[in-house]
């Protein structure tokens, strides 16, 4: 089975697996290391989608997944992923989950309140808030 595979396809699959796994790993690592809800959503919600899309491409190159099916799946992932992370971030902001070390908050300014969040450590003050 292995010997019948096109070497070009194998190289593509190998690259896609390595890069896709790398970005999935980054997503998990970011989720653990980053400090608050908003920053964690960056890692979990999007970098991981990128990883999953590449792994799906690898499955097309060497596995039995059809190209059309994979493209539809990737499109659905890419459309639904940002919608989910936006919904979570918006809900977190509305319920007042604090941002850690926020440097700037244009949304709070528009709503006519100063930085609404408790600032656990001193944000660098040389930036406009």
């Amino acid at each position: 089975m292995e010997a019948t595979l096109d070497p070009v396809l194998q190289v593509i699959a190998l690259l896609a697996i390595v890069v896709g796994s790398f970005f999935s790993l980054i997503g998990v690592l970011g989720f653990v290391r980053l400090p608050d809800v908003y920053t964690r959503l960056h890692a979990a919600g999007k970098v991981s989608v990128f990883g999953a899309a590449l792994l799906a491409l690898a499955a097309v190159a060497v596995g039995s997944l059809g190209l059309g099916k994979a493209l539809v799946l990737i499109a659905l992932l890419v459309i639904a992923g940002p919608a989910v992370s936006h919904a979570l971030a918006s809900a977190a902001y509305r319920t007042g989950v604090p941002m850690t070390n926020a440097m700037r908050d244009d949304l709070a300014r528009r709503r006519g309140r100063s930085l609404p969040f408790a600032q656990p450590s001193d944000p660098s003050s040389d930036l406009p808030v």
Binding site: L29, Y38, A43, N101, A102, R104, D105
Partner: peptide
């Protein structure tokens, strides 16, 4: 994605979060 990967992998975690 590469930019974010670099931030996450950096031992100092150089994030400057905020809303723009």
């Amino acid at each position: 994605g590469i930019r974010v990967a670099r931030i996450v992998l950096d031992p100092k975690l150089p994030i400057r979060p905020g809303i723009l």
